[in-house]
């Protein structure tokens, strides 16, 4: 019975969100967080009024704050719940929530077992004051375990809004884990918008030769085999790695407020941005039918 009340708290909070996109991958380190961050940035840039949220449920290894240049910020409590940290400063259109904002020291480990993680996720879903959002991007940890089950369980009242994007790298070892992740989405009836192949090739800065550092084409083959839309492949982009890595520590941004907006400007100059824009336009097209149902 207590459970019923929680669900309504979550659904009341999430009702003002149009689309919820969960970024998944069975494997770690394939670029879920960087894809989530890019997805949020692109959706944000797609329209001057778009309001986007990004929720990082990787509780023991949150990377989103660093990537969006808001590392070290703290979450404020308001009478209407937790206020997300806005990566674009005063504009307040790109909200971000992560366990990284809640730990005191950035070297502190969050050593939690399942039930505690479950509680935290429930709070993230029910207590964060997102306001009206066009998109909420959820970055997940690797695997198909507590965090994922909890997410879907708590969001079951808003299930029609949910969809997933799966990220993989091209090598067989990663594809195997991604296959498991796909089985997970099937077992839970989560619609998959498509597959993104990340780290597909690396362009040598000295001679321009493309090396397939982690093999190539595996993601596309898998998408065909499994009947999934293939959204595109992203090569290893050192500019992007550097940008997302040093987002907060970079020397250029001196003012905390405008620094994140600068992140978008700098992001749009990376080679990945162009490729990703296409991915996002395919993705939003796949989302469109849902929207028409929603707005009825």
């Amino acid at each position: 019975m207590a459970n019923d009340q929680e669900t309504t708290a979550v659904s009341r909070r999430l009702n003002s969100i149009k689309h919820i996109i969960i970024v998944l991958s069975g494997k770690g380190g394939v670029g879920k967080s960087s894809v989530s961050a890019q997805l949020a940035l692109n959706l944000y840039a797609a329209s001057p009024t778009a309001r986007v949220g990004i929720l990082d449920v990787d509780l023991t290894g949150p990377s989103i704050p660093r990537m969006l240049g808001v590392d070290g910020h703290a979450v404020h409590q308001s009478s209407d719940g937790w206020v997300p940290v806005y990566a674009d400063g005063a504009q307040g259109r790109l909200g971000c929530m992560s366990v990284g904002f809640l730990v005191k020291n950035k070297g502190d480990s969050v050593v939690w077992r399942g039930p505690k993680k479950n509680g935290m996720i429930r709070q993230f879903l029910s207590d964060v004051r997102w306001g009206d959002l066009d998109y909420l991007v959820i970055d997940t940890p690797p695997g198909t375990s507590d965090e994922h089950l909890s997410l879907l369980e708590h969001m079951s009242p808003v299930y029609p809004k949910l969809s997933a994007v799966i990220v993989t790298t091209p090598q067989a070892v990663a594809l195997m884990d991604v296959m498991k992740c796909l089985s997970f989405t099937r077992a839970t009836n989560l619609p998959v918008l498509g597959l993104i192949e990340n780290m597909s090739g690396y362009v040598c800065p000295c001679c321009g030769e493309v090396s397939n550092v982690f093999s190539t084409g595996g993601g596309k083959d898998m998408a065909e085999r499994e009947g999934l839309p293939f959204l595109g492949s992203l090569p290893v982009d050192t500019e992007l790695v550097t940008l997302l890595d040093a987002a907060s520590g970079g020397g250029e941004d001196s003012t905390g407020g405008s620094g994140a907006f600068e992140l978008l400007v700098r992001y749009e100059k990376t080679p990945s941005a162009k490729l990703f824009r296409e991915i996002v336009s395919t993705l939003t097209r796949n989302l469109a039918p849902d929207q028409s149902i929603d707005s009825k």
């Binding site: 040598c204 030769e209 090396s211 550092v213 050192t238 040093a246 520590g249």
Partner: peptide
């Protein structure tokens, strides 16, 4: 670090920014 099989030039794919 990564050694290009073509030109043997070494580059950093994942730069140690810190």
């Amino acid at each position: 670090g990564f050694v290009c099989p073509n030109c043997k030039g070494e580059s950093q794919i994942f730069k140690p920014t810190t």
